[in-house]
Amino acid sequence: MVKTASVTDKPIQLRVFPYRMLQPQTAEKILNEIDQVKGVSRMLVSGKNLPRKVTCGPGTGSDVNHPDRVIIHVGGCAFELHVIVGDIYVEVDDESAIEGVRAACERALPFPFELKRGHFIKRKPTLTDFGKYGFKSKTDESINLEDERILGLTDPHAKLETNLCLVKSEENS
């Protein structure tokens, strides 16, 4: 029998919506606070692009040098912010982590925010993902990935190295 199912469980997804666009220092603080919460499995940072160069108009090609495009450290992992952080999507394993995420946001944000529960990050691979990674084998039609949690965290056409930050938990390291 051909195996097709990729995702069996349905973790809880949350959207943190601060009332202001976050500066890198605040973004770093909130991401680290959320990272400390037990049960958080994935985080996705979303916001408005901070381009390296001017991409349209008479100034095309000029360097932007946006001061918010800096390297931040989350869970011991450094990565460059490509966006001004607007929303943070968080996936947690169980209900008990929701209040932990809320408390983390309250500690990190000096202004109000919304915390909503819903479906925000991809839970199962799409055609584009299968096109990129393929099937595991002829008899196993699940996606050819060791860890399916990376699905939905980046654009399928984007380079993973510059957009994805893998933080190992203490038990696994």
């Binding site: 601060p18 009332y19 202001r20 666009m21 976050l22 500066q23 605040t26 408005k48 692009n49 901070l50 381009p51 001017v54 100034g59 932007v64 040098n65 946006h66 001061p67 001004i84 607007g86 202004f111």
Partner: peptide, 18 residues
Amino acid sequence: HGHSLRLQEDGTMFDMLD
């Protein structure tokens, strides 16, 4: 881009080209 976005933390409107 910026007129319909939330303001930045410092209270100014976002400017992609700084």
